[in-house]
Design a protein around this nucleic acid. Structure first.
Lengths: 238, 238
DNA sequence: ACCTGAACACCGTTCAAGT
DNA sequence: ACCTGAACACCGTTCAAGT
């Protein structure tokens, strides 16, 4: 058999293989470099062959997000609601850290996918199971925002997800002493708080901060705030 | 004079005119539809003419962000630090709401622009002037994240900034009764908290929530948390 | 049913040439 | 000094054709 040259060396294309290859390619080259044509080439196939398995590029990205969000796995019960939500958010973060492009892909979606809704539903369920009102849970979920996916838009601009460009950006970011002095002159308050940063004296902005610490600090401030409002019987008066 | 046909009807191109036209075009058509070629056409000029005034598209976007962040204006002093920071963040939000594409443009920057650094410096200055330690200020700024620009990645995916696509998305989002029941069956906790939303019973996800309320709710939870840590003499042990 | 080839309507950007 | 024209190396996607 092997009627076509392609079938001789490749298993038949299907949606799962297309999505897996797209995830792998994005892991390797960044989301900006991911194109239908490049993905087709990776699969040893002509670009139009992909369109039998995904309707268009938007649906490809939906499928990739679905795959990553699906990695989060089911919630582990037991703890109080504050610890349970914390654990689930950090599990989402762990999944996203494995795919640096994923936060950008999630941001670019214009509609939630089933796996996204399922994850949100499970987080909401942890609040409600802990006795938090639907009203407070609703506003708490909004306040978490993209933090329920394990990321947030950071204070300083994000480095590109393309690994090569990322290395270049980090090299460019290593500030000289002169640049540091110029910054201190123009932005004295920033210079003061940058001096108070947790780690890594080698870089000035963007790098040099402990991402995990900052993420958990903010998460805990929010969760403590929610707990306080819950204990006080808070309701939005609407 | 009027040597060229173009000079007869248009003032000479310069960086400010290019940036102003880009901002206006993005306001009207969305950031996704903004192209160097489209912008050139808007200005009655050939695409390559733009490259005398901006190095490339990235620098064009830098300039646009610079323009919007520059609209925030200088801080108003007087109040306690918590109110001062709150006011400044809401001023940033007001500027960004005038340009729906601006949050996406800020997200896409890989390096802070001078106006961005200046705004960050002014916010840091408000904390420090209120007696908050550089250490706590640093982590508080990280916790605010993109909220210092007046936006955050919301829980549900963002509608496209292109006004036409936005209208289409909203129409598609108006859920039928059947869809609502299906959602309640699959995602019971989401259904429960959506039912507790502030406003607008006509839509199910994404719409239907009071953006201003959610933004200020989260901002106040964070600011209250920072104030509490400040009063308790909190330090990160590093 | 699935893949291919050629084509269309776009991009950002370079280079050499005009005035 | 500033703008133009033609070209290059890309995009996503359509349509009609192959097997």
């Amino acid at each position: 058999m092997d009627r076509t040259p392609n079938a001789a060396r490749r298993p038949q294309l299907n949606r799962a293989r297309v999505l897996a290859a797209a995830v792998e390619l994005a892991d390797r080259t960044g989301i900006e470099a991911l194109s239908m044509r490049g993905l087709a080439q990776e699969l040893g196939v002509v670009p139009m062959a992909l369109y039998k398995h995904v309707a268009n590029k938007e649906e490809l990205l939906d499928g990739m997000v679905e795959a990553v969000v699906g990695e989060i796995g089911p919630p582990t019960g037991g703890a109080d609601w504050q610890a349970a939500v914390r654990g689930r958010v950090l599990a989402a973060r762990a999944a996203l850290l494995r795919h640096p492009w994923a936060s950008r892909a999630i941001e670019s979606r214009t509609r939630p996918t089933p796996a996204m809704l399922s994850h949100l539903d499970s987080v909401a369920g942890l609040f409600l199971a802990g006795g938090v009102s639907a009203d407070l849970t609703h506003h708490a979920m909004h306040a978490l925002g993209s933090r329920v996916w394990g990321f947030t838009q950071e204070l300083f601009p994000a480095p590109p997800t393309d690994p090569a460009a990322q290395a270049a950006a980090e090299a460019a970011q290593a500030a000289t002493a002169a640049q540091l002095q110029a910054m201190a002159a123009h932005f004295p308050h920033l210079a003061a708080i940058v001096a108070a940063r947790s780690h890594d004296p080698g870089s000035v902005v963007g790098g040099g901060c402990d991402d995990a610490f900052e993420f958990e600090f903010a998460l805990d401030v929010l969760l403590d705030g929610f707990a306080r409002l819950h204990r006080a019987g808070w309701t939005s008066a609407h």
